[in-house]
Amino acid sequence: MERSDILEKVQVPPELPVVQALEKMDRAAQQILLVTDGDGRLVGTVTDGDVRRALLEGVNLREPVERIMNPRPRVLPAGSSPEDARQLMIDHGIRHVPLVDNLGRVVDLIMWQELFLPRKEVHPEKVVIMAGGQGTRLDPFTRILPKPMIPLRDKPIIEVIMEKFHRQGLSRFILCLGYKAEIIRLYFNGDSRPYNIEFVQEDSPLGTAGALSLLNGYLDDTFLLTNCDIIVEMDYAHLLQYHREQQNSITIVGALKEFVVPYGVLRTEDNSFRIEEKPNFHFLVNTGVYVLEPAVLPLVPGGTKIDMPELIHAAQDQGFKIGVYPHHGRWFDIGQWDEYQQTLKFFETMGFGG
Rank of each mutant, 00 (worst) to 15 (best):
L239H: 07
I322Y: 13
E83L: 15
H243W: 04
D139C: 02
V100M: 08
L7W: 10
D235Q: 11
V291N: 00
I231D: 09
H327R: 02
A21V: 03
A314I: 00
F173D: 08
D333W: 12
R193P: 02
V65C: 04
I6Q: 01
V289T: 06
P98Y: 06
P326H: 02
F165L: 02
K305W: 03
P98R: 05
P146T: 01
H328N: 03
P14G: 07
F259W: 08
I174D: 07
T47P: 12
H92S: 08
L145N: 09
F223E: 14
V128C: 02
G135W: 12
G210M: 07
K164V: 00
G207R: 03
G135P: 13
K321T: 06
L103T: 04
V128A: 05
V296E: 13
D108H: 09
H123I: 00
P309A: 02
M162T: 09
Q113F: 14
N286E: 15
L215Q: 02
V59S: 09
I150T: 08
D139H: 14
S213R: 01
D270E: 13
V51M: 05
V75F: 14
P148I: 00
F188Q: 05
I231V: 13
A255M: 02
Q20F: 14
Q20L: 10
R172S: 06
F116I: 07
T136E: 15
S80K: 06
R105L: 05
I252N: 01
D338P: 00
N280R: 14
F273S: 04
L115K: 06
F332A: 05
N60I: 01
